[in-house]
Simulated scan of single mutants.
Amino acid sequence: MTTEPTLRPERPFFSSGPTCKPPGWSLEKLDIKSLGRSHRSKYAKGRLKYAIDLTKELLGIPDDYLVGIMPGSDTGALECAMWTMLGARPATVAAWESFGNVWIQDAVKQLKLKDLQVLDAGYGEIPDLTQIPQENDVVFTWNGTTSGAKIANTDWLAPGREGLAINDATSAVFAMEMDWSKLDATTYSWQKVLGGEAQHGMLILSPKAVERIESYDPAWPLPKLFRLKKGDKINRGIFEGATINTPSMLATEDYIAALEWVKSIGGRQAMFDRADANAKIVKDWIEATPWMRNMVADPAQQTNTGVCMVFQGEWYDSLSDEDKAAVPKKIASKLEEMDIGYDFNGYRDAPPSLRIWCGGSLEAEDIRRLLPWIEWAYEELKAGNL
């Protein structure tokens, strides 16, 4: 039996979304002058535009790309891209985890795309993306939040390809560099890598995507929240702070605070470095722990954000399926009860697992302190004490 550790994480927030707030965050630091005012007022609209401009600056988004704030978090932004752009040519939807499979269901059951290729893979794997024709529009998830599997590169997207590339990057932006030259519609939510509040999403469009929106009218009706055009041209006001619906200015100010924190520590590269360092702590521990393995076998496809791990070994393998499913739940529940670590059980539809968020808003020392507690809880469970 292992001895109960003595060091506790100072910030026990390990959720994969909404994720940990940036270090030093507090409500008192937020600008609240826009609260209680119209989002169309000069000041509030200026804050929304500032959020957009700072996003472009920090992510290195090309000047001729448009960035807009959308309702409905990443889901709203991604589905807006699908509803407004797909159907003009053959399409592929590629998925290797829970949310990617939602986009497949959208394409098959809601949009009912006629010329559709579906590529999927199990948790921890990536399908063969070289099977995707370059003339096809493609929808894919850069980084699988629920499986811990990410694309290793964008070599499978040819430069100047005919089809559009629609990229769900919600747990990748600010943790991995985006290859903007090959991306036409990219979406993410504030609640992920930046530790912002949920509700709003970002939609980033290339000139090629704008041309598609302006030249193509889908066969299906578009709800107001997805209408990006004014007449036969894209409504550029949406990408200058005139959001489609009323945004939360408090959530907006929280997003701005997160962006300003990123800028203060050195920009996106600093965030990449922090996520890489945090993930290395967890991955090294997994390698050194005989009863644990990374859900993703290929190191090139292992994420640096939501690292997912599954149990193995003689004791675990001897359990019934029901008891196996209970192992990560009991460990996560016990450590949450003790205020050691919150929300690091695996995703509900994934194989029984633990998932530790390693994005740049977390401090490495808190991750180091969590891991011995997982070892302790595992041994307590084996001994029948949990």
Rank of each mutant, 00 (worst) to 15 (best):
R8C: 03
L113T: 05
G196A: 00
G266P: 06
M178Q: 13
P90D: 02
R8I: 12
I61Y: 04
A326W: 02
L259M: 09
P5K: 07
E380C: 09
A277Q: 10
P133E: 04
E337P: 01
A270L: 09
A258Q: 05
K56A: 12
R8A: 06
Y255L: 08
Y255S: 02
W285A: 05
I132M: 02
P133Y: 07
Y216Q: 07
L335V: 05
A149N: 02
R89A: 13
P159I: 11
E260T: 13
L66S: 03
V210R: 01
M309I: 10
D323Q: 12
E322C: 00
T170E: 08
M271K: 00
E79C: 03
A95I: 02
A185C: 15
E380P: 00
F14C: 07
C20G: 07
I32M: 10
T130E: 14
G100T: 11
L113I: 10
V173F: 03
Y43H: 10
P22E: 05
M292P: 01
E240P: 00
S215E: 12
G231S: 05
A297S: 14
L354N: 06
D232G: 12
W373K: 01
T186H: 09
E97W: 06
E79I: 05
N345E: 14
A257I: 00
L203G: 00
A91H: 01
G360V: 04
I256S: 01
I286Q: 03
L116M: 13
E380F: 00
L164S: 08
A251S: 13
T75I: 13
